[in-house]
Design a protein around this nucleic acid. Sequence first.
DNA 1: GGATGTGAATGTCTTCACAGCT
DNA 2: AGCTGTGAAGACATTCACATCC
Lengths: 219, 219
Amino acid sequence: MEPEQWLVVSKRVSDSVVHRLSLYLRVLESWEADGQRVVSSQELAGGGGATAAQVRKDLSVFGSFGKRGLGYSVPELADRIRSILGLEREWRVALVGAGRIGSALLEHGGFGDRGFSIVAVFDVDPDKVGRPWGGSLVRDVRELEEAIRDEGVQIVILAVPVEAVHSVMDRAIRAGARGVLNFAPTTLNVPEGVVVRDVNLMMELEALSFALSRGPDGE
Amino acid sequence: MEPEQWLVVSKRVSDSVVHRLSLYLRVLESWEADGQRVVSSQELAGGGGATAAQVRKDLSVFGSFGKRGLGYSVPELADRIRSILGLEREWRVALVGAGRIGSALLEHGGFGDRGFSIVAVFDVDPDKVGRPWGGSLVRDVRELEEAIRDEGVQIVILAVPVEAVHSVMDRAIRAGARGVLNFAPTTLNVPEGVVVRDVNLMMELEALSFALSRGPDGE
DNA sequence: GGATGTGAATGTCTTCACAGCT
DNA sequence: AGCTGTGAAGACATTCACATCC
């Protein structure tokens, strides 16, 4: 037999798979809290909107975590998914724009639990600068680069007006940020190696509008 | 030639297509404001993150709106897309949970412009009930069914704690709502004919975490 | 027996490439 | 010539079904 070689081609993982992993994790954590020890792909699928086969295929991308005939260990699988999603490390996050979106994030809560630490908050408004905000103080956005570097920020949340968002993002990236959560209703162009996720509430409402327009009595 | 019959099978339209239509509309509106009269699929594609062929395929699902050799009329195409998305009518929206998420929505603004009127706001907190909120008064959530019926609400925005969300939604649906924008981190089960969109910020951050973990220096 | 893990089949979405108008 | 509209090809994602192991 010949010696083999592996070139780990780390196959591309689709957004859908990642999205569902998050869902599975949420289900697992609620079952974990209920003291459930074991779960089947069938049961996992019920929680989110997936099928049993899909659960198994999704997980098989990353390895085989179950026992045939038995199912998956709840705590073990939860750990595995957390590890896959990169939730075992701390992510250092900066929020730019200390308006209501930022407050809503805080209210939503559960950030620290998942390893996302908001280590800096910025605003342009002199009235807001210097005020306390979730354990730290609001900084002037002019200090953005410096603070991102000093605090080792990897992810920036952009909750600024659409006119400002691109320049703020560019500055954040130059200072070292590699992940962007964008709330402004515009498409951002980013260099290689930077990841953007958009949250656009108007587009969600438009999707509802579309679906309702063609519904039973719509058309 | 024989007489023909059509059975309009209104083919299923994928979420991706609807999502991109929203993007195209956004691009078109900015070009419209700039006084641009005509646009090519190539140019439209540039604005969002699509290809020219994709733009054409997306539009072809609904008809053919361009002129060969020329391109698309900016105002006409914008109108067509607005019509496809159902944005020419008024949508009556209720917000349940007068917390910071709701305020963030207001701040985000531009609701009325797109035909979404927030006609009722609810909360459980007696301190909030009765207070002014964006032009109306916060109502007690116990009045939910009555108000949804009276106001002809079609869409509810659920910004309530995860424990409460399912029962609130069920009540809203029984009272006649058919679209749901859910901010609670849980998967909702809805009857036939009701449409749900989930907004889950933690899952967006998890997607960033995943992508960054396998990036250039990650793995 | 029971549930996983996975090739194969099916279904859906995207890209290609070119005929057909302007 | 230029750009749309669209079948056909290709890439990708989901579902099926069954061998495999506990």
